[in-house]
Design a protein around this nucleic acid. Structure first.
Lengths: 237, 237
DNA sequence: TCAAAAGTGTTATAGTTACACCCATGA
DNA sequence: TCATGGGTGTAACTATAACACTTTTGA
């Protein structure tokens, strides 16, 4: 990255954003049985970082999180919720050491953690000007993370698990139409444990959030599983 | 309040504190069967406000919350935990309208909510330079609150209830030595519902967090209740 | 003797877990 | 015919709620 890039960005940020505050998004994704989190890689650094950004002076924090998520993934209307604040004074002190002291990025930041869930097949991660990569990485095999971003992900995962049966998590992580075995596999990945099939069936059915869509006509070697989608009424709750 | 007071404070804050960030404490207290929250009354305003403050540039947010709580109540070593962030851009726009635009207090603030629990008899609330009162008010009969502080209290109460059986809440709200009926009364106040005595007894005993201290020698008209204190081991968990 | 407190017993109900069984179906 | 999926039965266990009974004790 050329210094002028980041210095130009710095000027704009001083003008338009709230200093000392950042938003980091822990974006969970699911694709072909793999449970992932969206990470970026900073130019000139070995560690991975959460996709994040800053809050415009006139923008609500929720809107900032939405915007940041959209900029990095193109995803809109996804489940997005705040789960924590991380504000140790030294949490980012190792960063941007080689830059001038009045560089925006060098100041102390308190970051607000949002977590989101996304059907990976619907989005294309895009690196921003400071990253040379933006990729899905497996939640249970995280690469080296910078600063306190690993702890932030762990806190987000805790919250995700807390909310799994109370918020429409599956709706955003799966394609619109899915099968019960797919749904169970997703829940097992998130909770990192196996469930009994019969009990899972009853538990989900009792919640009354699925609508049957007929049977799959896959060329599989066995019985085609039923197809379901989520009842649109769950969004309103 | 003389304008010069607040303007002088403003200057110091610009020098030493993180702009745009504040900490508000929802301090729950309990005394003689009454479940309360600590509130301050701003000079020249009718509404009540949560005790709050700002984060020093070199201070962690947790430390700022501790300091603010100590300044307003003298209380130390109490249970204190973050429970939310409140950052709507217009949440404080009605305040300090009559002041100059570069007054510290007039900028947009994102506030970090901490909740604390305190044995009221151990502390003396003290108004700060901007308040002409700092008092315990009953949680279920709150006075008129400014800005979004009523919602902040409600969120804190939710969190308190969530944590009641998982964190040493009672330890901080009751005197060191207490009786089981006192403990039950406290839990009933917090949850705003009655519990069956026998079931409550078994539930608490199963948790194994109380140590018996012998019997009370009160001059009461009936059997003296047993005395308990919390097992010091609960702090380490 | 009465009211408060402590401790225990019991029953009904609800939810969870772990199995097991049977049926359907598509190559 | 066999592997996968759908649907249900059931027994063991746990947790909770509601109520009742007994005993202790201090004035």
């Amino acid at each position: 990255m050329r210094n002028t890039d980041i210095e130009k960005a710095s000027e704009a940020l001083w003008k338009n954003a709230l200093p000392h505050l950042s938003v980091d998004c822990v974006v969970f994704g699911y694709h072909q049985g793999s449970f992932n989190v969206l990470l970026a890689k900073m130019k000139g650094d070995n560690g991975w970082i959460l996709p994040g950004g800053y809050i415009q002076k006139t923008e609500s924090i929720d809107d900032a999180a939405k915007r940041i998520l959209f900029e990095r993934s193109g995803a809109e209307k996804v489940f997005l919720e705040v789960f924590g604040v991380f504000g140790e004074p030294n949490r980012s002190q190792d960063y941007f050491v080689e830059y001038d002291d009045n560089l925006w990025h060098k100041m102390r930041f308190v970051t607000i953690g949002y977590y989101a869930v996304i059907d990976q097949s619907q989005v294309t991660p895009v690196p921003d000007m400071f990253s040379d990569a933006c990729e899905w990485m497996p939640v249970y095999e995280l690469p080296e993370m910078v600063m306190d971003h690993k702890q932030i992900i762990e806190k987000a995962l805790e919250k995700l698990r807390d909310q799994l049966y109370h918020k429409p998590i599956g709706y955003n992580l799966l394609p619109e139409i899915f099968t019960l075995p797919q749904l169970q596999a997703l829940y097992e990945k998130i909770m990192n444990q196996k469930f009994n099939r019969g009990n899972f069936y009853r538990k989900i059915m009792k919640e009354n959030i699925l609508i049957k869509q007929g049977e799959a006509k896959t060329g599989g070697a066995h019985k085609a599983p039923h197809l379901y989608k989520f009842d649109p009424a769950i969004y309103t709750k």
